[in-house]
Measured scan of single mutants.
Amino acid sequence: DHDVVPEDKFQETLHLKEKEGCPQAFHALLSWLLTQDSTAILDFWRVLFKDYNLERYGRLQPILDSFPKDVDLSQPRKGRKPPAVPKALVPPPRLPTKRKASEEARAAAPAALTPRGTASPGSQLKAKPPKKPESSAEQQRLPLGNGIQTMSASVQRAVAMSSGDVPGARGAVEGILIQQVFESGGSKKCIQVGGEFYTPSKFEDSGSGKNKARSSSGPKPLVRAKGAQGAAPGGGEARLGQQGSVPAPLALPSDPQLHQKNEDECAVCRDGGELICCDGCPRAFHLACLSPPLREIPSGTWRCSSCLQATVQEVQPRAEEPRPQEPPVETPLPPGLRSAGEEVRGPPGEPLAGMDTTLVYKHLPAPPSAAPLPGLDSSALHPLLCVGPEGQQNLAPGARCGVCGDGTDVLRCTHCAAAFHWRCHFPAGTSRPGTGLRCRSCSGDVTPAPVEGVLAPSPARLAPGPAKDDTASHEPALHRDDLESLLSEHTFDGILQWAIQSMARPAAPFPS
């Protein structure tokens, strides 16, 4: 592969990997390779389809078979030569091979799209000592099968071997295949498990690692696999990028399955594409389908809103127990993405979901129960707010008499603000006073009005108090039968009158 990737590009890729991570280095090298001529790309395919690569990765054979028959990708048995050289000459001794072996032994695996480039050397060096003999053996194999790289107009793939297949390693990572398949204008990513390549439709969760975000852009890794992070704060999961590491605690105790298979379609829109997988259930989501939507993949363990709600429900009964003089119970939860139609709101002032922060849900004790107040519409209280300059209440639009249902020339009671006709409430011909108009209920007259088809109010509507207090003497005590009587009149003013009279009014101040 030294004929494909020059030394300066190799060093530039290593520097970019240390600065921005393996995914960015892979993407940059792939983009550079696509700008080369067809001879360089053909050399790339020839390096990929060597015999030892085909033996190690069985899924490469179907890719090789898909090439046109007129494309010669065979390799000479006596060494490598550029395709432009007409004579089959043995190339001179390859010093770059020693360079590659020494550099890969030092860096474990470079971040390139060629056999030198995919593992994360920093994480491997940190986690190597417990498994040094086995990992050293794996390093000797890295130059042979560490990076199976493929690129063409139909298929483009980048393979990364790992030393996680050490025997006896619980939940060992089998390997990473960062794979971009450009077929019919689409893009897919796969993962390699035990020599087999699994596409998103049959993606397997190998051991402790999972394909957290099938994305090839942005600074985030394709698999949430930063070796420096180790395990999740809650004892979460091992990262795919942690090559040759000792077994780590796999999943939280509440995880239903340690080796679950995540779905390959969004649980909201039932469509495929780039998904984020939940650590607590097999569901996966688009970032845009979450509520609120996320802009980037959160670091650490992530769970959907259903799993978060289940966790909150487990903690909430203990938080609601009476604990005198104790601060509110704080339950730190990872930043969760909410699927459509589901929402768990945190306290005000918290950062938005999706940031690399930890939301704190506070379970406050329930407030003391209070008697429910009568629910009145805002339009129902409008007549009470229509007060004239002299303190006389004006008529609201649409006000109707509670007896006849007519809204023409209605009066407004100064005591309960109900609309009424003087002739309907006082049919006996009582003279109307000039000021202080009161309806039949507030004036103490319980004589029913002779209106055909309208039920008369119940005599129990009024329960006047002592006459010594004029204001308190007109406080009506309405009961269920009074409400039914008012409802039978089918008037809004009657219902409003009952609601206003049912509310307690402050006692009249004593004259000074």
Results as ranks from 00 to 15, higher is better:
Q242P: 13
Q242D: 14
G244T: 07
G244C: 14
S245M: 14
P247N: 14
P247W: 00
P247Y: 14
P247S: 11
S254T: 14
D255F: 15
D255H: 08
P256E: 05
Q260H: 12
K261I: 05
N262P: 11
D264Q: 14
D264P: 13
E265M: 03
C266G: 05
A267I: 11
A267H: 08
V268F: 14
G273C: 09
L275A: 11
L275W: 00
C277E: 14
C277K: 06
C278K: 12
D279K: 03
G280D: 14
C281G: 08
C281D: 09
L287E: 13
L287Y: 11
L287D: 12
C289D: 15
C289F: 06
C289I: 03
R295G: 06
I297S: 07
I297L: 08
P298K: 06
S299C: 09
R303F: 12
C304M: 09
C304G: 15
C304V: 12
S306E: 08
L308G: 11
L308S: 07
L308E: 09
T311G: 12
Q313T: 10
E314N: 06
Q316W: 15
Q316L: 11
P317I: 12
R318W: 08
R318Q: 14
A319Y: 08
E320K: 12
E321R: 12
P322C: 11
P322V: 10
R323E: 11
E326P: 09
E326Q: 09
P328K: 12
T331H: 11
L333Y: 07
P334W: 15
P334F: 12
L337F: 07
R338M: 01
R338S: 06
A340F: 03
G341K: 05
G341Y: 05
E342S: 08
V344E: 15
R345H: 09
G346A: 08
G346L: 14
P347F: 03
E350M: 05
A353M: 15
A353V: 09
G354L: 14
M355A: 08
D356F: 04
T357R: 10
T358C: 05
T358F: 14
Y361C: 05
K362Y: 15
K362R: 01
K362A: 07
L364D: 07
L364G: 07
P365K: 10
P368T: 06
P368F: 05
P368H: 10
A370D: 05
A370W: 15
P372I: 15
P374N: 14
S378R: 08
S379L: 12
A380N: 04
L381G: 05
H382V: 11
P383R: 06
P383N: 13
L384Q: 11
L384H: 05
L385M: 03
C386V: 13
G388P: 14
G388S: 06
E390V: 13
G391K: 10
Q392V: 06
Q393R: 06
Q393V: 14
L395E: 08
A396G: 06
A396P: 05
A396W: 13
G398E: 07
A399T: 07
C401P: 03
C404R: 02
D406A: 11
D406F: 00
G407D: 07
D409L: 02
V410E: 12
V410Q: 03
R412K: 12
R412F: 02
C413F: 04
C413K: 03
C413D: 01
C416T: 03
C416P: 03
A417P: 05
A419P: 06
A419K: 05
F420M: 03
H421I: 01
H421P: 02
R423E: 13
H425K: 04
F426E: 07
A428N: 14
S431K: 12
R432C: 06
T435W: 14
T435C: 12
G436L: 06
L437W: 14
L437S: 05
S441A: 09
C442S: 01
C442N: 03
S443F: 13
G444R: 07
D445N: 06
D445H: 07
P448K: 10
P448L: 07
V454L: 10
L455R: 06
L455N: 09
A456I: 08
P457M: 02
S458P: 11
A463K: 04
A463L: 12
P466Y: 12
P466G: 14
A467F: 09
K468A: 04
D469V: 09
A472L: 08
A472C: 05
S473M: 06
S473G: 07
P476E: 12
H479S: 09
R480N: 02
D481T: 03
D481R: 02
D482Q: 06
D482T: 02
E484V: 03
S485C: 06
L486C: 03
L487D: 08
E489Q: 10
E489G: 03
H490S: 13
T491G: 05
F492N: 01
I495K: 01
L496Q: 00
Q497D: 03
Q497Y: 04
A499T: 13
I500T: 05
Q501V: 02
Q501H: 07
Q501C: 11
Q501K: 08
A508H: 09
A508P: 07
P509F: 09
P509T: 09
P511Q: 07
